Simulated scan of single mutants.
Amino acid sequence: MTAATLSQPSTVPVQFTPRPARGAPATLTTACSSCHLKELCLPCGMSGPTVDRLDGLRFARRRVKAGQPLYRAGDAFQFIYAVRSGTFRSSLAAADGREQVSGFSIAGELLGLDGLAQGRHASTATALEDAEICAIPYDHLMELSTGSPDLQKAVGRLMSREIVREHGLMLLLGSMNAEERLAAFLLNVSQRMKVRGWSPSEFHLRMSRAEIGSYLGMKLETVSRTFSAFVQQGLLEVDKRHIRILDLERLARTVESRVH
């Protein structure tokens, strides 16, 4: 084993906790029907009976420390991961060895669908802060979806959401200048915060400027310069990673014509 291998944080195997018998003390489990994130996660849009069917899903909850990978590129695909708390960075290894950030996932979003095509994960997912996930065995999910059109549609929606996300990234990298890219990124974060009932205009970015630059196809210096430009224009207040959007409408106009 090389020194480089020793320095890499290791993934922690998923441990399943059997459901407690009636009257037994509660364990670290949550039913989909009672989860506070059900309107954002897998049960979103499902009817009562279908959500009840999901309650039979055998899944595990797992805590992931900041900096620890949930899975690595090349790992066997077994689970779809629902983020309960925290933020994850997905990244790909470029041909020259550089790490290319491909996305950020927060509470209520799913990770791991990149493993469906080849049976192995194409990316690495790393926690940017202490986080918690539900590990959903894909094979068991497929068993439950047999004979349930609503559940089949839900799984299809999840895959479609990944495709839409990829198309959004292509739009960012293919046609926008630096200000438009950063504005679109901040507006995306704002909208995701709003959907969760959090402030859409004031939030803390868990990712670094370098990670934002990798995701948006911008150099670190350009990201920092663009943040400064937005501050000078009266669009933002920035205190390290803490962001306060002062004029959401004007920030939106920065990318509005390009998106249309």
Rank of each mutant, 00 (worst) to 15 (best):
E211S: 05
V83H: 10
F79C: 01
P137I: 02
R250T: 10
T27D: 15
G147K: 12
L169H: 02
S257A: 13
A73W: 04
A94E: 06
D247L: 14
E99M: 08
L205K: 07
E132A: 09
Y138A: 10
A178W: 08
L251P: 00
M142D: 14
Q78N: 11
L216W: 06
Q68Y: 10
S224V: 12
A73G: 07
M46R: 01
S224N: 11
R192Q: 11
V255P: 02
R72G: 05
A127T: 05
S7H: 13
A122W: 05
F88Q: 03
E202P: 03
Q78S: 09
M193N: 14
K65A: 13
Y71H: 11
C41K: 03
L92W: 10
L172N: 03
G174I: 00
S199M: 12
V83W: 08
P149F: 06
A95C: 01
R196W: 13
L141M: 15
L151G: 00
E237M: 14
A60S: 04
L205E: 06
L42N: 01
C41R: 02
S105K: 07
R225V: 00
T5D: 15
K194I: 06
P9A: 07
S199D: 09
L186R: 09
I163N: 09
A4C: 09
D239C: 05
T27K: 15
A127R: 09
G112R: 02
T222H: 13
T50H: 06
L111H: 02
R61L: 08
T11S: 13
P13D: 04
L57Y: 10
A183Q: 04
R241I: 04
L151Q: 01
L182F: 11
L70N: 03
S257R: 12
L173K: 14
G156S: 10
R258W: 08
T254D: 01
P69Q: 12
Y138F: 15
R253W: 14
V101Q: 05
G156H: 03
V255C: 11
K194D: 11
G23E: 13
